[in-house]
Write a protein that binds this DNA or RNA. Sequence first.
DNA 1: GTCTATAGAGTGATAGAC
DNA 2: GTCTATCACTCTATAGAC
Lengths: 189, 189
Amino acid sequence: MGESERGAATREHILATATAMFGESGYRGASLRDIAARCGLTHPGLLYHFPTKADLLEAVLQRRDDADTKAAGPQQHGVEALVALVGLAGRNAQARGLVELFATLSAEATAPDHPAHAYFVDRYSRVVREISRHFAEIQADGKLREGIDPAHAGRQWVALMDGLQVQWLLDESTDMAGTLEAHLRSQLT
Amino acid sequence: MGESERGAATREHILATATAMFGESGYRGASLRDIAARCGLTHPGLLYHFPTKADLLEAVLQRRDDADTKAAGPQQHGVEALVALVGLAGRNAQARGLVELFATLSAEATAPDHPAHAYFVDRYSRVVREISRHFAEIQADGKLREGIDPAHAGRQWVALMDGLQVQWLLDESTDMAGTLEAHLRSQLT
DNA sequence: GTCTATAGAGTGATAGAC
DNA sequence: GTCTATCACTCTATAGAC
């Protein structure tokens, strides 16, 4: 890494800007010209780094996954893992761009021909499975309330996080972390 | 009502088609030409009935609210009202167009300059208040589990319905009604 | 690496004939 | 009521200069 230093910085700047604008306006709504202009570039300048708009979207999603994985830190289990997610929801309330990105794109990508459709289908099945596993661990520890099915609880948790994000985007006084925490408490013994 | 019969039928046809296409592709993604073509019209023909695209969207949302109000039938309370919503979720699974409409638009309308922004801000505050009232009624009947706050429960319920719709749109094997029902049971004594 | 210029297609909306 | 034709604009992407 020597002469490619400047190029990498531009690439990173583009990705951060695209993340914000895909969130604000959706993939269809944010144009390459708008994104490029916010980076102090023209749109062909941007396309030198990402050959097509779909490539840019893919890089944005990949980058976000990488950041998430790194931020998650050491692997956690059971209740600790869910408490960590409540904390993440609280911190997300300070990064509106990222919340918008996923709320907007996951709905938009519902259309089978959307460039991020496969990404979101895969992501949801993975996340639901993961959260359900945490509830199963809680159950194994004897700390899950009676009559609660870990698979249902996992799916509910993911739906709750998504739905709360939409409500928070429409009205920022919505208490995402508090509502999520209340739900968690009601599931435990 | 005599000579305006044919005009009303065309209007209704346009609204049904626009509902489906705004759902499939979002407000931005569905063009007036596409909607008009599916109605056997040209796009100026459509614009005779709805002067602008935003007017068409407003009429679509208004029509859906009217249909909902009528379908709701006699006003219900407490647990019965929530059970009725579980049933509605089950029936919605047979009308993908309507589910898509609200999932797609509520995320898209998160942007403050979206033509349906005010509609959704208002709708959510109204619906959350209404569902919270049902939980308060359940509490008054002594049937709400201890430590559950009706206001939290109402917000959670709405978030759950929205989040489950996105999951169902990405994977139709998702059991919306069952997951919702499991949640309801876990809230009751 | 970034630019100007442009191709080629699509958009919402309007004018005016029938 | 519905059409054809068109305006003015935007979009993604490419060609080629620097």
